[in-house]
Simulated assay, not measured.
Amino acid sequence: MARLSDRAAGAVGSLGEYLAEQRRHAQLSLRQLSDLAGVSNPYLSQIERGLRKPSADVLQQLAKALRISAETLYVRAGILDPDDSAEGTDGRKVAGVVDAVLLDPALNERQKRVLLDVYTSFVRENAAPDEPPATQPPARKRSAD
């Protein structure tokens, strides 16, 4: 778990930058977003500047106001690990792809979930290919007669 808390400490600044970017993308002022989310204007400003780490509840309120996934903000804040189990065929974590999907504002939540499900199934399929037992001869190609 130390890995997550280390990541959380480094993610606060990027969370604030991401929130500010999403707020601008939604064409909302700081005051408008604070009103919509039910958080104070100074507190939201401190979050955006990376001075405060908001709770999961505050992140959920902000996500709802911005019409983005709360999960996306949890990942950005280091509260949620995007996908601990997915590994590439070379054993490296594929969190970069998961982050990209979760953070893409062009996708809705259903699309993100479906895309990640498909991606994860492909990664698992390629990471652990089923090998035939050693006692069976390799399959032969059929020739067209």
Rank of each mutant, 00 (worst) to 15 (best):
D145W: 10
P137S: 11
V123W: 05
G10R: 14
D81E: 11
E131N: 08
S14C: 06
P54V: 01
R31A: 13
L36E: 06
A139R: 11
A65F: 01
L62G: 00
V94M: 13
S14I: 08
L107C: 05
R124N: 15
R24F: 13
P137R: 11
Y43T: 03
R67P: 01
L62P: 00
A20H: 11
L107R: 09
E109I: 07
S69K: 05
F122M: 14
R92A: 12
L36K: 13
R113P: 01
P133V: 08
N126R: 14
A86N: 08
R124P: 01
R113M: 09
S55N: 04
N126S: 13
R49H: 14
S14T: 10
A128V: 09
S40N: 10
D130H: 12
A56F: 05
Q22S: 06
R110Y: 11
E125R: 13
S85N: 11
A77E: 01
L102H: 02
N126E: 12
N108M: 05
S14E: 13
T89D: 07
L28D: 03
A100S: 14
V94G: 07
D130R: 14
L115C: 06
V98Q: 00
G13T: 09
D130Q: 11
V114R: 09
G16M: 04
N108T: 06
A65D: 02
G10D: 09
E87G: 06
A63P: 03
A86S: 14
N41D: 10
R31S: 10
A11P: 00
P82S: 05
R23L: 06
L36T: 01
A70D: 09
V118M: 12
E48H: 04
H25F: 13
D130K: 12
G78D: 02
K93C: 07
A2R: 14
L19C: 05
R49Y: 08
D90I: 06
L59F: 04
D130F: 14
T72W: 02
R142K: 10
A9L: 14
V58L: 04
V94T: 15
R110D: 11
L19G: 00
